[in-house]
Design a protein around this nucleic acid. Structure first.
Lengths: 171, 171
DNA sequence: GGGGCTTGGTTCAAGTTTGAAACAAACCTA
DNA sequence: TAGGTTTGTTTCAAACTTGAACCAAGCCCC
């Protein structure tokens, strides 16, 4: 089977995307490292926790939400725990499970640093986009994320038996 | 000054972008690690070299093209050199400079693995996009990359004196 | 032509990521 | 209910990244 090479439009799009993504992540990481003392990934782990019920999630669910491997999450949570921003608890209804919970201090850090982070995201990305382009951006990447999420090895919630869920079946 | 929070459209776009980008880089890294024994960044360093005149570039120019720091590049090139895919040479007209050149073996690896890489990029990204969306993707990220490149600490070629250039001034 | 600044590149230690292997609890099935 | 499988999580070593510090070579200018 002969290779379906990229057209020159696709090449240009791909290169622009890669370049911008590197620059963007650099800018965001630099700002968060400065102001919050942690890289972007760690910040979004805190953010994910802050939006969960009771500000806590099982490790696997948190990894799924953050789109990272469990082992990477284990390391990150250990660091955040050492900093006092997250607390680890045992899962009540599943002896194997462990739960990461945002501490009050973690919540405080998040609240203190959120404005600066949002400002950076704006200055780096949205300030350069029209309202229309924001819509296009969302549609494009929602499609891609959707496709990669099911195509990948991570099953969708609907495909798995109840015991895979994060909440106990009878509550 | 009060924070300009993200609108809900912007939030959705941002999250979709982050999620898709994580999944995409994972997929591509996994494939390249499998088939070429190196992560995506290292592959693109080889690709950048393969397109340069004489298949060689000065370290700083290569770092610029790859959108990474010089120290990260130093490490990467050392590894690639150890694998025999890249050769380091001294810059003839600037005693400080050093040059990374793609070896024949490096070129061979690139040619052998390019089809699989392109196929993955296609399967992960472009297969999910309309022709229109490819155009939108390019426009969006070309704008962003452009803005971040000049805004950032990296000056554009035009802003710098001749001695910053990679080619000797009189040749 | 010798100090003082800038630039190109590397080095080093600390931090992070990776993927495979290890473990333990839960589940299933005969 | 014992044995085998699956699932949730951590551990470990090797690889990679970061940023600051360093070194050497070019530039500037009096």
């Amino acid at each position: 089977m002969t290779t379906r090479w990229l057209t020159s439009e696709e090449q240009r799009a791909w290169r622009a995307y890669i370049a911008a993504t590197h620059l963007l992540e650099d800018a965001i990481d630099r700002q968060l490292q400065q102001d919050a003392g942690m890289p972007h990934l760690y910040y979004s782990i805190l953010a994910n926790l802050s939006e969960a019920p009771d500000r806590q999630l099982r490790m696997t669910d948190l990894a799924e939400k953050s789109k990272i491997t469990r082992s990477r999450l284990t390391y990150a949570v250990s660091r955040l725990e050492k900093d006092g921003l997250v607390r680890r608890e045992n899962c009540k209804w599943d002896g194997r499970g462990s739960i990461a919970a945002l501490t009050d201090e973690g919540m405080a850090v998040l609240e203190r640093t959120a404005p600066g982070h949002v400002e950076t995201v704006r200055a780096s990305l949205f300030d350069h986009l029209s309202k229309e382009q924001v819509g296009q951006l969302e549609e494009i990447f929602a499609q891609v994320a959707g496709a990669l999420a099911e195509g990948g090895s991570r099953p969708t919630p609907d495909e798995v038996p109840w015991r895979r869920r994060s909440t106990p079946p009878c509550s």
